[in-house]
Amino acid sequence: MRRKPGTLLPVEVAILAAALEAGPGEEFYGYAIARRIQAGEASRLLTAHGTLYKALDRMLKAGLLAARWEDAEAAAQEERPRRRLYRVTGVGEAALHEEARRQALQHAAGLSEGLQPS
């Protein structure tokens, strides 16, 4: 999807917002964030695999997120596959605030246009 530089896609906003809800610097993994987004948006289905992991990959490359693979031993102890743990970076946090500010301005502009006498 093409977009203006410096803006975030809706799925990216949802990921950042859901991740920061748990607290800045908190780590999360793919399924957990999909679950949080689902709860936040009250949708019936979780974010699709392709949409979610493509967005996470893109956000990593953009520096909005940082990632590391969980310690193999910790996963083995719980008898499950290793998680890839993400956390929102300072850049990601700033991008979300900027996006919120931009959307608020757009909303205000829309409102003032509607209030103008015809």
């Binding site: 999909a34 289905l45 979780l46 974010t47 699709a48 695999h49 392709g50 949409t51 979610l52 992991y53 493509k54 990959d57």
Partner: peptide, 14 residues
């Protein structure tokens, strides 16, 4: 299954 099927276009783009 639904998450996989709905994500196919994004998978292919990735």
């Amino acid at each position: 299954l639904m998450r996989c099927l709905l994500g196919i276009p994004a998978d292919l783009a990735w």
